[in-house]
Amino acid sequence: MTLVTTGELVSAAAAEGRGVAAFNVITLEHAEAIAAGAEQAAAPAILQVSENAVRFHGGRLGPIAAAAAAVARASSAPLALHLDHVVSPALLHAAHDEGFSSVMFDASKLSYDENVKATAEAVRWGHRQGIWVEAELGEVGGKDGGAPLEAHAPGARTDPAEAAAYVAGTGVDALAVAVGSAHAMTERTAALDHELIGRLRDAVPVPLVLHGSSGVPDGELRAALSAGMVKINVGTALNAAFTGEVRAFLDANPGVVDPRKYLVPAREAMAGTVAEFLGLLG
Results as ranks from 00 to 15, higher is better:
residue 248 A to F: 03
residue 17 G to H: 07
residue 154 P to S: 11
residue 222 R to M: 08
residue 261 K to V: 07
residue 254 P to G: 10
residue 232 I to P: 09
residue 160 P to C: 06
residue 55 R to P: 04
residue 246 V to F: 08
residue 205 P to K: 06
residue 132 W to C: 02
residue 253 N to C: 00
residue 69 A to Q: 05
residue 196 L to V: 06
residue 170 T to Y: 14
residue 123 V to D: 13
residue 274 V to D: 14
residue 136 E to Y: 07
residue 148 P to K: 01
residue 63 P to D: 00
residue 270 M to L: 11
residue 250 L to S: 00
residue 27 T to K: 08
residue 34 I to G: 06
residue 126 G to W: 09
residue 191 A to N: 10
residue 158 T to F: 10
residue 258 D to P: 09
residue 232 I to H: 05
residue 65 A to Q: 05
residue 195 E to G: 14
residue 190 A to F: 10
residue 146 G to N: 15
residue 20 V to A: 12
residue 223 A to F: 10
residue 239 N to M: 01
residue 154 P to Q: 09
residue 42 A to C: 12
residue 253 N to G: 01
residue 204 V to L: 00
residue 54 V to R: 01
residue 73 R to A: 12
residue 156 A to S: 15
residue 239 N to L: 00
residue 167 V to R: 11
residue 223 A to C: 08
residue 141 G to S: 08
residue 135 A to T: 12
residue 277 F to S: 03
residue 258 D to G: 02
residue 224 A to M: 02
residue 250 L to D: 03
residue 58 G to Q: 08
residue 98 E to L: 04
residue 98 E to A: 12
residue 218 D to H: 14
residue 47 L to M: 14
residue 93 H to K: 15
residue 202 D to S: 15
residue 203 A to K: 04
residue 112 Y to Q: 03
residue 81 L to A: 04
residue 259 P to D: 09
residue 97 D to V: 10
residue 18 R to D: 05
residue 239 N to G: 05
residue 243 T to H: 06
residue 93 H to R: 15
residue 207 P to N: 02
residue 1 M to V: 14
residue 282 G to H: 15
residue 269 A to P: 04
residue 44 P to F: 06
residue 48 Q to G: 07
residue 47 L to K: 02
residue 41 A to R: 04
residue 213 S to C: 13
residue 11 S to G: 15
residue 195 E to P: 11
residue 163 A to H: 04
residue 275 A to F: 01
residue 31 A to T: 12
residue 59 G to Y: 02
residue 282 G to W: 12
residue 180 G to T: 11
residue 3 L to G: 13
residue 49 V to I: 15
residue 203 A to P: 14
residue 266 A to F: 09
residue 179 V to P: 13
residue 277 F to E: 05
residue 92 L to R: 04
residue 160 P to T: 04
residue 6 T to Y: 03
residue 271 A to G: 15
residue 50 S to V: 07
residue 89 P to C: 03
residue 32 E to M: 11
residue 241 A to D: 01
residue 270 M to I: 02
residue 14 A to D: 13
residue 216 V to K: 04
residue 26 I to P: 12
residue 102 S to A: 13
residue 11 S to Q: 14
residue 186 T to N: 08
residue 44 P to S: 04
residue 43 A to W: 03
residue 14 A to T: 10
residue 133 V to H: 10
residue 201 R to D: 00
residue 19 G to D: 07
residue 204 V to C: 09
